[in-house]
């Protein structure tokens, strides 16, 4: 028990020291950062240029629906009102007029703007972690719960005996020892 407390104290000091170092470091980064999302929209939006080639805005949006604005957070391309996104939609219209299919257009935008336009991490490299970790955690929790409940169910006859001297220190110690052991194993 004392070891855990000391470890936490140590962590606290470490974290605070880390923060102290981090704050001035980040200030420099901030200056280098430019405001990407400040470009804005015009009301008199018209889907003009490429629609002449008999590509309807509907067909454009069919593709744009599966892409995401690379500048905003969580805004779909077919609904985004940034100038840049309007140009992206015009680009889709041109590509459709040239006979590209949906996959080709999507791949083009991924090349141009990076995986950000997908709205979800692509299944490659480090990004696998985004998809897998939730299920690993869920499965881990599930197995832990299952085993705990099964142990409880099978050890039921002894329950009464334990409950009788539940307040005695030896049981409490035994419990905390087991918990520490489990924490080591699962944490």
């Amino acid at each position: 028990m004392h070891r855990i407390k000391h470890a936490l104290l140590f962590l606290l000091v470490g974290a605070l020291a880390f923060l102290a170092v981090l704050s001035p470091g980040n200030a420099e980064l901030a200056i280098a950062q430019t405001d990407a999302a400040s470009s804005s929209t015009d009301v008199r939006m018209t889907q003009n240029s490429a629609t002449a080639n008999s590509v309807t805005p509907n067909e454009v949006n069919e593709v744009a629906k599966e892409l995401w604005c690379p500048l905003c957070n969580g805004v779909r391309l077919d609904a985004c009102e940034l100038k840049a996104c309007e140009q992206m939609r015009d680009m889709i219209a041109e590509q459709l007029a040239e006979g590209w299919d949906k996959e080709q257009i999507k791949n083009y935008f991924i090349e141009q703007y990076g995986p950000q336009v997908l709205g979800a991490p692509p299944l490659e490299g480090f990004n696998w972690l985004a998809w897998i970790l939730p299920f690993v955690a869920l499965a881990g929790g599930g197995v832990f719960l299952w085993r705990t409940v099964r142990r409880m169910v099978t050890s039921r006859p002894q329950e009464a005996a334990i409950a009788m001297d539940g307040a005695s220190p030896s049981v409490a110690d035994e419990y905390s020892r087991r918990l520490e052991e489990e924490l080591k194993r699962y944490g």
Binding site: W68, G114, V117, L118, G119, A120, P121, N127, A130, P134
Partner: peptide, 24 residues
């Protein structure tokens, strides 16, 4: 929580900017 913070981890660790939105 993981999905919300994943873009931050991704940017910090790989330098790649990712969006995690409705599809995920």
């Amino acid at each position: 929580l993981w999905g919300t913070f994943f873009p931050m981890f991704s940017e910090l660790l790989t330098g790649q900017r990712i969006s995690v939105a409705a599809p995920f």
